[in-house]
Simulated assay, not measured.
Amino acid sequence: MHNAITIDALKVLDAIDRRGSFAGAAAELFRVPSAISYTVQKLEDDLGIDIFDRSGHRAKLTPAGLYLLNEGRALLDATDALAHATKQVAQGWETRIKIAVNTLLPMDALFPAIRAFQALDVPVEIQLVEEVFAGAWDALQCRRVDLVFGADSLSRPAGPFATRILGQVPFVYAVAPNHPLCHETGVIPEDTLARYPAIVAADSARHMQPATAGIFSRQRTITVTNIDQKISAQAAGLGVGWLPEPRIRERLANGTLVGLDVEAVRQPVVLHLVRHHESQGDDHACQGNALRWFWDKLSEPHQFSRWIDPLSR
Rank of each mutant, 00 (worst) to 15 (best):
A202D: 11
C182R: 11
G24Y: 09
R31H: 13
A236C: 04
P301M: 14
L110N: 05
A158L: 12
L252G: 07
V258L: 02
Q267F: 13
D152Y: 00
T223K: 05
A59Q: 05
E131K: 07
E263W: 00
L75M: 11
D152R: 02
D50Y: 08
Q88P: 03
Q267V: 10
H2R: 14
Q209I: 11
I126H: 03
K11H: 08
R73I: 01
A35E: 12
R220H: 06
E263N: 02
R249S: 15
I114Q: 09
L154K: 06
L273W: 09
N226K: 05
P268E: 09
A174N: 00
A176T: 05
H302L: 15
A9W: 07
T62P: 07
D261T: 14
P112L: 05
L181H: 03
T192W: 00
A109M: 13
L104G: 05
L166N: 09
H84D: 10
R73W: 04
Q219M: 01
T79S: 10
A205W: 02
A109K: 07
R247Y: 06
L75N: 08
W93N: 04
R96F: 03
I97G: 02
D53H: 00
K230M: 08
G159A: 11
L193V: 05
P63V: 02
P244E: 12
P180N: 02
S299V: 11
A83Q: 13
H277L: 13
V124T: 15
K87A: 14
F30P: 03
P189M: 05
L260V: 11
Q303C: 14
Q209F: 12
D191C: 05
R206W: 02
P106E: 12
A26D: 07
L140V: 04
A162D: 15
V145H: 01
S21C: 02
V32N: 15
P160E: 12
I199E: 00
P112V: 04
A158Y: 08
V32M: 14
K297E: 15
W295S: 06
A136K: 00
P123H: 10
L140E: 02
R195A: 07
A64I: 08
R313M: 12
R73Y: 03
T223D: 09
E130D: 05
A81K: 14
E184H: 10
G65R: 00
V169Q: 09
R195I: 04
F171Y: 14
I215Y: 01
T163L: 15
D203L: 01
L166Y: 08
Q234K: 08
E250W: 06
F133D: 07
R143Y: 04
R96W: 03
T39H: 11
E300R: 15
G65K: 01
I49H: 03
V148A: 06
G20Y: 04
A202L: 10
A78R: 14
Q280I: 11
A116F: 04
H179K: 00
I49N: 01
E245A: 13
A116R: 15
V129W: 02
K60E: 10
L291G: 09
R144K: 10
V270W: 07
Q88G: 03
D108F: 10
A158H: 12
Q118G: 15
A25V: 04
A158M: 11
H284A: 13
P197S: 07
P310Y: 09
I227Q: 09
I36W: 04
L61Q: 01
W93G: 05
Q91R: 13
T39Q: 15
L271G: 04
A213L: 12
R292G: 09
G239C: 03
